[in-house]
């Protein structure tokens, strides 16, 4: 029988500039011994720039575990405020090394034209920051 219990661990990151990639670099807590599932979703922010309730891809996320030793893959992140939005976790079976890094990159793919960011890279008033959350379904041994 597997020892431990399941917890859900969120990692939130914010996108402040539509054209600048975001680097993810965070240490996972020591009590997480295994990743059982992964889900990455838009949390808040995009709804302030769009009246749509669904945009299929707002950005690409690349994730690595165990100090970049394990590349989980690339994920398309949708904006989905519809009631029927999927709540499924992607299956994963990743044994996590103690105190290891979760790393990755996020590249925004929406609202990148000059109305949102000038040639000098400074965002305009039309741009609104948004937050994406990576949810890790984990096996915890605390």
């Amino acid at each position: 029988m597997t020892k431990g219990r399941i917890t859900y661990y969120p990692v939130q990151f914010i996108i402040l500039n539509p054209k600048a990639p975001v680097t993810i670099n965070t240490v996972l807590p020591n009590h997480i011994s295994r990743i059982l599932g992964i889900k990455a979703i838009h949390s808040v922010g995009i709804e302030q720039m769009s009246s749509e309730s669904y945009l299929p891809v707002i950005g690409h996320l690349s994730l690595e575990f165990n100090n970049k030793q394990y590349h989980f893959g690339n994920l398309d992140i949708p904006f989905d405020n519809r009631p029927e939005a999927s709540d499924e976790y992607l299956d994963a079976r990743i044994d996590v090394q103690p105190n290891s890094l979760l790393t990755g990159n996020y590249e925004n793919k929406v609202f990148t034209d000059s109305a949102y960011v000038g040639a000098d890279g400074v965002v305009t008033d039309k741009w609104k920051n948004y937050i994406v959350t990576i949810y890790l379904k984990t096996l915890s041994n605390d």
Binding site: V11, Q12, F13, I14, I15, L16, N17, A20, P21, V22, T23, I24, N25, T26, S43, V44, G45, K128, N129, Y130, I131
Partner: peptide, 18 residues
């Protein structure tokens, strides 16, 4: 709760893990 984090400019210029 999360809306309150949107205006926080104390991250890297491009954003990052909160």
């Amino acid at each position: 709760s999360l809306q309150s984090l949107l205006g926080n400019a104390s991250y890297n210029p491009s954003g990052g893990v909160i």
